[in-house]
Amino acid sequence: MNKIVIAMSVLGAVAFAGSASAEKLKATLDAKSEVPATTSSGTGTADLDYDAASKKLSWKVTYSGLSGPATAAHFHGPAEPGKNAGVAIPIPGAATSPAEGSATLTDAQAADLLGGKLYVNIHTAANPGGEIRGQVTK
């Protein structure tokens, strides 16, 4: 009987720990957030799940209204809103919306993600530096 109680306690603790490490994050993408701002009427969202135990970031990026097809998309950072930074994590398959994927983050990338220092940027031929952008927030 004691072995069953202990096993159930351990399983409950593992299940609780697994769910406690998951973070839901989001980015709202628009032209005014670009640096410098663009005149695009494009908009988008990025819905993100981050599992701290495995350091796995999963995303679904949806956008519309761009000046043309997306040529690339990335997470950039580290940078606060209003600042630019280099590519931190590529978003493959962003030529079509929605773009879904995942990546395993480094410790530094995980700290930047949870610290609000990553942003999502969608690039087009007319706006190669980025057409719409959104800061990742909790």
Rank of each mutant, 00 (worst) to 15 (best):
V5S: 14
M8E: 15
V10Q: 08
L11G: 12
A17D: 07
G18D: 05
S19Y: 12
S19K: 06
S19A: 13
S21D: 06
E23N: 13
E23S: 10
K24A: 14
L29P: 00
E34G: 00
V35Y: 00
V35S: 01
T38I: 05
T39D: 09
S40A: 05
S41I: 11
G42P: 00
G42N: 12
T43D: 03
L48A: 08
L48K: 03
A53R: 05
K56H: 08
K56G: 07
L57K: 02
S58P: 10
W59D: 08
K60C: 07
T62N: 06
T62F: 11
Y63Q: 02
S64D: 13
S64C: 04
S67K: 10
S67L: 05
P69N: 14
P69F: 09
T71N: 04
A72E: 04
A72N: 12
F75A: 00
F75G: 00
F75W: 10
E80W: 04
A85H: 02
A85R: 03
G86W: 03
A88L: 03
A88N: 01
I89V: 15
I91Q: 02
G93K: 02
G93I: 15
A95E: 15
A99G: 13
E100A: 14
T104N: 02
L105R: 06
L105F: 14
T106P: 08
D107A: 15
D107R: 11
A111S: 14
G115M: 15
G116P: 01
Y119A: 01
Y119W: 06
I122A: 03
H123E: 10
T124Y: 09
T124K: 01
N127Y: 13
N127M: 02
G129S: 09
E131T: 02
I132T: 07
R133E: 06
